[in-house]
């Protein structure tokens, strides 16, 4: 499980996270909501080890190990997966090849045997089918020329194949049509097991109809200002953040 205590981080000397306390027990899905610029993506980056961010205080552990002391690839090997708000393009890099390289890197880290191209393709095709994605998605270059929605689906495909223990989904539902929204939710639900947790960053209550969270947290100015059950998302959908912002001021 994920335990965050007093986490503070800044970028270019500008403080963005100002003491985050958050606990996501194993097997639970938590949603993070909050206005634009409140630090949601930053939290995802800091947890996954992006180097531009300086951690200025606090701790973050995952199943007891200190996340912040690890390289990004070690965090991935420990089971952390971040679905990017804006997935990155890798020109010339074939999606299937990328996924196989990633999966094999994780398998190596776990002392498992690597998959050859045939074994991998079988697995990947089964997943694309389950996620109702066209096969040619595997042949194309990573995210290059993908539509906004296709990029998000590609993140879900990666997540499905890499089978993380902790998934952070950063607005993976934004820009998706209704059907795709359900697919994303199904993607996460399919991974649900006692040792899996997810942190779902979203602006829309809609996703949470399909993917019912155990808890909803509201992030504001780099702090969690309110936590509650699934009903909190519904409330916010109606009233917006105005009241919370006024309270915080």
């Amino acid at each position: 499980m994920l335990e965050i205590r007093g986490l503070a981080a800044s970028i270019n000397e500008k403080p963005i996270l100002n003491g985050i306390d958050l606990e996501v027990p194993a097997g639970e899905v938590h949603a993070i909501m909050g206005p634009n610029g409140s630090g949601k993506s930053t939290l995802g980056y800091v947890l996954s080890g992006r180097e531009d961010y300086a951690v200025t205080g606090g701790t973050a552990t995952f199943n007891g190990v200190d996340l912040l002391a690890m390289e990004p690839e070690q965090r991935a090997a420990a089971g952390l997966f971040l679905a990017f708000q804006a997935p990155i393009e890798l020109p010339g890099v074939n999606n299937a090849n990328f996924l196989r390289t990633a999966l094999n890197a994780l398998r190596r880290a776990h002392g498992e045997s690597e998959l050859d191209a045939v074994q991998f393709l079988k697995l990947a095709k089964a997943e694309t089918k389950r996620l109702a994605m066209p096969d040619d998605m595997l042949k194309r270059n990573v995210n290059v020329g993908f539509s906004g929605g296709e990029k998000k689906r590609n993140e879900v495909l990666q997540m499905a194949l890499l089978r993380p223990k902790l998934a952070i989904l950063d607005e993976t539902d934004s820009g998706l049509d209704i059907d795709a929204l359900k697919i994303v939710a199904d993607g996460v639900n399919a991974l649900r097991r006692p040792e899996f947790s997810a942190l779902v960053i979203t602006h829309h209550q809609r996703l949470l109809d399909y993917l019912v969270p155990n808890k909803v947290h509201v992030l504001l100015h780099g702090r969690i200002v309110r936590s509650g059950g699934p009903e909190l998302a519904k409330e916010l959908e109606k009233s917006g953040y105005a009241e919370l912002i006024a309270e915080a001021a």
Binding site: S48, E73, A77
Partner: peptide, 12 residues
């Protein structure tokens, strides 16, 4: 840097 980070986040 974001390309490298993306790959490393996936375990490379």
């Amino acid at each position: 840097d974001d390309q490298l980070f993306y790959c490393r986040q996936r375990g490379l």
